[in-house]
Design a protein around this nucleic acid. Sequence first.
DNA 1: ATTCCTTTTGCAACAAAGTTGCATTCCGTT
DNA 2: AACGGAATGCAACTTTGTTGCAAAAGGAAT
Lengths: 138, 138
Amino acid sequence: MADVINDILKRNQLSVTDSRKKILEFFHHADGALAHADIEKMSGESFDRVTIYRTLQTFVEKGIIHTIPTADNSVKYALCKDECAAGHHHDDHIHFLCDDCGTTYCLDTHVPAVQLPQGFVVKRTDVVVSGKCGKCSN
Amino acid sequence: MADVINDILKRNQLSVTDSRKKILEFFHHADGALAHADIEKMSGESFDRVTIYRTLQTFVEKGIIHTIPTADNSVKYALCKDECAAGHHHDDHIHFLCDDCGTTYCLDTHVPAVQLPQGFVVKRTDVVVSGKCGKCSN
DNA sequence: ATTCCTTTTGCAACAAAGTTGCATTCCGTT
DNA sequence: AACGGAATGCAACTTTGTTGCAAAAGGAAT
């Protein structure tokens, strides 16, 4: 486990620090996406708020995590299943946000192609579905 | 023009006030979606920041405008083409965000059905496409 | 037009979220 | 062990969003 975390950081030319290791672990243990606030709560007093902001920013830049747009204005971050290896596109799967438990899932379902008016060039497509997840729909 | 604005407010049982009229006009003149900050800039000193928050909130509740999730955490609001009459669903069309000019478009393209794992119940689907719009792609 | 009641607004004070600069500490390499 | 660059923590600050309450404006009836 520790090796996996270490590998990801080294692969991305990032020095291995306590905060980066811990935040990466949070993502690995979470079954969904995390918001800044979630990480802040989980880490308690371990490290500064600013460090979390900067770490998340770094991870996004390196492509280790990606952001998920949500209708309620809270930015969430998620690690991709394949560790977000180089060449992986973040917009080829859809996201599901459960209204009940708040969990955000990265689903395997691929993004359907959409038709756009002439002259429009697509760079990225985000599909965010909300409703009730498998655990909350009973 | 003034009549149209007036009608929308009355139809929704809202009293006709300066701020509501002005904010609705902004939406009618804009060719895309607006963020809270946009409206604040446009209105200058006309009315309080709090009034804008409350007006947008009211409009969303009444179904006059709808929110659009964006990957960069800024909530945008848009008026639908059909004035958002009762029965209109906001998630039946897709949104396009231009990376160059920042304009957000409501497109006529319908949201494709997505397949979800068993047990997942869909309530709403947002599709946000980004790239270059017709004006910026040349 | 005047009155009366309700809704909306503005102000002020907060709370929460995010940013920046700088000194200190830590990581990785020699 | 020591050095240089990168990362962290702290403090101060800006931006964004919320809440309570008194003043003002809207709408309906007289």
